[in-house]
Write a protein that binds this DNA or RNA. Structure first.
Lengths: 253, 253
DNA sequence: AAGTGGTCTAGACCACCCC
DNA sequence: GGGTGGTCTAGACCACTTA
């Protein structure tokens, strides 16, 4: 009979560190409070800085921390619940939906977008860039693609300032028959990262949506949400508030 | 007049490396093909192994690679589209929905779950653990919580084998009035990771759902989906197939 | 100028898988 | 036993913010 082997599978240091820090955040820190710097924290826990950073990275991924170069590491507030429909079937840009247009061009869509829209690969489409802001901070960057066939009544005298509003106005004259969406994990491209106030490569939730009218795909959008600060909400019962982070909603079976 | 400064913001090595590898995966490798090992790749690109790993980690996060300890790094197939409703308003466990029950206990729910359900913090609830399998591999691990009040007709003589089916059967006698969901990024806990065939800390998409009946929350579930292999689909137009990865659907504005 | 997080190096050892 | 990816170290320098 050997001794009972409690640590037959010793957990990695960074994993244990993450647990300790997570508990400390709950009990010893307030939202917005700044943590000691990484070199001090590493020394305090007796690990290399890279090991500490591995724990911090996971906590940031889970929305518990926010790190800013040149500033420091702060305790993040709970994630915002962001509705991504379909609460009511509405066209993008209709009503007050917290999106702000930042640009609009007519250009050939990438191959995958053409496949989504069902257009020819080199077909020029209206491409509207928008940003979604909540509580004063950007939460999503979007590219909305509208084939010319969906907006036949578009006037010809368009300036950069009138292009996007005109496309949206024409789009809204169609009857929206349905929409579908998909969500997947991605990393922010350089342009999206800049608009989201993050570094390139930051984790994002990519929402791809298709809008149907007249039996065809009338428009499509690719929205890039900050994964660290957002919780996407769906469904007919409305967005709901939770009081804790998602980790707290899960337990061992 | 100085010279034009093309590289005023030099991109990090790992970022450039990621781009190079991403292109190589498209042009020189097939799905399932095994890559050279990390030490060889690092030497080939003239960088330290840690730097190469930073690039590989991002590519794995984006679903382009699959890495397995003791085996190697392979080119991942496109992500699976996984429907997470509401395609039709149905109770969990109804019909053929690809979930397999692996356990069931009656125990006090964690505080956040009690808040979701609207039950007392120490109220015992039926907790069913299920696993979702697609194409022969696990894609999600779930905990489904059902308060006793939602299944009043539950018989008393329950064995581990009959517990879960009985709870589901009783649940299905209620009329489902609505459901809502939220999606956020998380990292796999040890128990979920084991069932998903991943290491602890692997990125996951956490889907929290509430099911309404008789004007109350009759059940709630927390589902943990593998973020590397899954694209979650929502909406009334049905899951759709895309031919490329999400990166291909995005372009610079 | 000082302090922060971000990137990078060149090693080492460990856990796991397969032969 | 040999090869793989996973963890960890102890440094260095860079980019950015703030004062």
């Amino acid at each position: 009979m050997g001794t009972t082997q409690l640590e037959s599978v010793p957990e990695p240091k960074y994993w244990h560190l993450k647990t300790v820090l997570n508990d400390a955040l709950d009990s010893e820190f307030e939202v917005g409070e700044i943590l000691p710097n990484e070199r001090d924290l590493a020394a305090r826990f007796g690990v290399a800085r890279a090991t500490l950073r591995q724990a911090l990275e996971q906590l940031e991924l889970e929305g518990r921390l926010q790190r800013r170069r040149g500033v420091g590491t702060t305790v993040a507030p709970p994630r915002m619940g962001v509705s991504v429909g379909p609460s009511a079937n509405t066209w993008p840009g209709a009503g007050i939906d917290a999106w702000e247009t930042v640009g609009c061009v007519e250009a050939a869509a990438p191959a995958a977008i053409a496949a989504l829209l069902g257009t020819a690969p080199d077909q020029a489409v209206h491409t509207i860039r928008r940003v979604r802001v909540m509580r004063g901070q950007p939460v999503a960057a979007e590219l909305l693609y509208v084939p010319p066939a969906s907006v036949p009544g578009l006037p010809g005298d368009l300036t950069p300032a009138t292009h996007a509003p005109a496309v949206l106005r024409e789009l809204h004259t169609l009857e929206l028959e349905g929409e579908d969406r998909s969500v997947e994990l991605g990393s922010a491209r350089a342009d999206d990262a800049k608009q989201l106030d993050r570094l390139p490569g930051a984790p994002v939730l990519v929402v791809t949506a298709r809008y149907y009218a007249a039996g065809r795909v009338a428009a499509a959008s690719v929205s890039t949400y900050r994964a660290d600060t957002c919780r996407l909400t769906f469904g007919d019962a409305g967005a709901f508030e939770v009081t804790h982070h998602q980790q707290d909603t899960r337990q061992a079976s």
